[in-house]
Amino acid sequence: MGSFPRKGQNMYQILEKRELNPTVTLMKIHAPAVAKKANPGQFIILRTDADGERIPLTVADYDRAAGSVTIIFQVVGATTEKLNHLGVGDSLHDFVGPLGRPTNTEGKRRVAVVGGGVGCAIAYPVAKKFFEQGTEVHTVAGFRTRELVILEQEFAAVSHKFVRMSDDGSWGEKGLVTDALRRLIESGEQYDEVITIGPLPMMKFVCLLTREFGIPTVASMNPIMIDGTGMCGGCRLTVGGKTKFACVDGPEFDGHQIDFDEAIARSSVYKPFERHAYEEACNLFRKEVE
């Protein structure tokens, strides 16, 4: 018999749960088959319950020996709200992956990793992998304010240079990640590649900046998805004038080729629905508490 983990009682069980900031949570999930194959840059899809929607979340870390996969999520909608109400010992209904292609770290000697907000959760394993293979890693992390900062020590441990930025100056310097990146580049830092992960507008401006300097740049995209296996086509985006599917062709793409404006527009298609569903979910939990 093989070593393939069978579906047992503790399948997809939450092994650990930690609040990283008031709206961002880390969870370690028991999923040996996914842990065995996961690599930085890939994602998983989960459902919290039998009627739940499928949501993609990027792999934040994994422990092959322990058979666990770490996810970090921000509570932004009904499903992440439900997810955040689960605790250690509870199980997810579904957890599938690893999906998408891993980050290509080969042959890069000096990189800048630029993360924004909860995107830093995805940027971290990428920075870590580069660091562990001996690449010179400069990390630029940006948050709105100090209260929202996540993974500070973790980043510090895997970065040769770590620049902290916040919108209001309460953490590191006041300013945008692009300000910090521009300064690094203009001070003479040479990068084989810039990897950017964060809100779409941030990634768009990082890519515009690096294009100016001709530095190859990879952006990690997180579009709306359903199956995540190359069947529905909902995650399509335009890269270099061609239609690409984030789930099988990505989620990382050449940042200078991505049509960010289109991606930004597409990401908003269900906004009213999501807001409504989120409010409903919140009301439901509020009632339970009362």
């Binding site: 009627d51 739940g52 929607e53 499928r54 009904a78 499903t79 359903i226 199956d227 069947m231 529905c232 086509g233 909902g234 399509r236 985006l237 335009t238 239609t243 289109e262 527009a265 597409r266 908003s268 298609v269 269900y270 629905f273 999501e274 569903a277």
Partner: peptide, 30 residues
């Protein structure tokens, strides 16, 4: 790639597998 353009696979998956036709479904459809 405008909003409101679906592949049949996506449209049908939302409706059938994800049961977006039922009121209160967690998966949206326009």
């Amino acid at each position: 790639n405008l909003k409101g353009v679906y592949s049949a696979n996506e449209f049908l998956t939302r409706v059938n597998l994800m049961k977006a036709y039922l009121p209160g479904s967690a998966t949206p459809i326009r």
